[in-house]
């Protein structure tokens, strides 16, 4: 049938996939050799494959990735019953002797220890934890434990901090909890009175991004420099309080603050200018409740 009868696209597509039996395939090929319209159809079929292959496949948007992280954290919590809450290492305490902390520690008075309450499962809950929180700060207990483990591991692997890690390990949970219960208002020396009403000198963003250690080693601008700044967030006051505390520790000018997560834990990423000309910044990662460092303050660049 090399005359008037043509083959339809489906037969030609099956030929291309090698799905036709030997005899049929030979007949179709003989026809194709003399029939330009059918040859064109075959080229159309090949073009479909090329067009599909050339269509770009986008990477997963950050929002979707974050959503999945949260769903998996919730799943982890529901599986393990939400017990085993571990406290985050108290970076303020651990890093007290670090060179950049010296000016602060010399002028800070000993902080009064506040008592916590022992909950049913034996963990000590700071007495101040009754402050109502917005839902976005709520975090699965296991995720908190996981974050603490990550931070703890990073600590142990840093020889510089080995002694600090040992102190944390041997002093037991009670000491750490007691420290965490001593809240911002309890240490007037470290939070100099600041007028929170005045205009912010830094930009505040709310990316919700889950930062990793690697993220923070990259230029920060790529992470949150381009995001739209927010002004009148309900969190602004709370953020400002933490920013003031960080500034009082670092004695540096805060440049930008982003609300997000650090290894799955709610966190404020505070960037302060160390050397503006060289675009060098000090990066503090603090928890938004007690403004305590979740990891060692480190140098970053914009």
């Amino acid at each position: 049938m090399t005359g008037d009868t043509h083959y339809d696209l489906e037969i030609l597509a099956e030929l291309a996939e090698g799905l036709l039996d030997v005899d049929t395939a030979r007949r179709v090929r003989e026809h194709l050799a003399v029939c330009d319209p059918c040859g064109e159809l075959l080229a159309d079929l090949a073009a479909v494959r090329e067009v599909l292959a050339a269509t770009p496949t986008p990477a997963m948007p950050m929002g979707v990735a974050l959503r999945i992280d949260k769903a998996l954290a919730a799943e982890a919590e529901s599986r393990r019953g939400g017990v085993g809450l571990a406290e985050t290492p108290d970076w303020d305490e651990l890093m007290r002797d670090a060179p950049w902390e010296q000016p602060v520690s010399t002028e800070s008075a000993p902080e009064p220890v506040r008592l916590g309450v022992v909950s049913d499962d034996g963990t000590i809950v700071p007495a101040r934890r009754t402050v109502a929180r917005r839902r976005r700060w709520a975090m699965p207990a296991v995720a908190a434990a996981a974050a603490a483990v990550v931070v703890g591991t990073a600590l142990a692997s840093t020889s510089l901090l080995a002694s600090g890690g040992g102190t944390s390990g041997t002093s037991g949970g009670g000491d750490v909890v007691a420290k965490s219960a001593s809240s911002p208002p309890a240490s007037p020396a470290t939070s100099p009175p600041k007028d929170h009403k005045r205009a912010k000198s830094y930009s505040l963003t709310d990316s919700g991004h889950n930062y990793s250690e690697q993220d923070l080693r990259r230029p920060i601008e790529g992470l949150f420099g381009f995001r739209q700044a927010i002004d009148n967030s309900a969190d602004a006051g709370k953020v400002d309080k933490c920013v003031s505390r960080v500034a009082s520790r670092s004695k540096l000018a805060t440049y930008a603050v982003d609300q997000g997560q650090y290894n799955g834990q709610e966190a404020l990423i505070v960037a302060s200018w160390k050397n503006k000309a060289a675009k060098r910044l000090r990066i503090d990662v603090v928890d938004p409740f007690n403004c305590k460092n979740l990891r060692k303050p480190a140098l970053g660049h914009w």
Partner: peptide, 15 residues
């Protein structure tokens, strides 16, 4: 293969 073939046959005139 046959699903791909039939799918491509349907897409060919469109694309």
């Amino acid at each position: 293969k046959s699903r791909c073939a039939r799918g491509r046959a349907k897409l060919a005139p469109i694309l």
